[in-house]
């Protein structure tokens, strides 16, 4: 399974950025929390609208199965659902801590967006 985590930095010890579309990095890891890739999301950070949609497309292109983030708006959520990517929202701490919570089955899957559409 591939897991994408929105992050303030490029490593698995980086702290999670709660924003999906506008997080500076999206870290992609496998089940065992081995780093696969750290995507530089900076061009999205200052996007006007559609930042979440573009971020969703970015991780869908990399065949991610699960996204761990803080907040996920309605447009991003719709896009993620269409791509079959599951969402674990309200995550905090480091990338590693969040992935370990997944392993322990402590991350509920979101069935709806938990943020307003962001401009």
């Amino acid at each position: 399974m591939k897991i994408a985590v929105t992050s303030t930095g490029k490593t698995i010890e980086s702290v999670i950025d709660p924003r999906f579309g506008r997080a500076p990095f999206i870290v992609i890891v496998d089940d065992d929390c081995n780093l696969i890739e750290a995507i530089d999301n900076s061009k999205n950070v200052n996007a006007f609208r559609g930042a979440g949609i573009q971020a969703a497309k970015t991780i869908a292109d990399r065949k991610v199965d699960l996204l761990l983030t803080g907040r996920c708006g309605p447009n991003a959520f719709t896009t993620l659902q269409a791509a079959g990517i599951k969402v674990g929202a309200e995550q905090s701490g480091t990338v590693r801590e969040a992935v370990e919570r997944v392993k322990r089955n402590e991350v509920p899957l979101a069935d709806k967006p938990n943020a307003e559409a962001h401009w």
């Binding site: 949609i53 969703a56 719709t78 269409a82």
Partner: peptide, 15 residues
């Protein structure tokens, strides 16, 4: 240019 139409997975979503 506005992310208003997005092909993703096996579908296309319009915003």
């Amino acid at each position: 240019q506005f992310s208003a139409i997005v092909p993703i997975g096996k579908t296309v979503i319009a915003f």
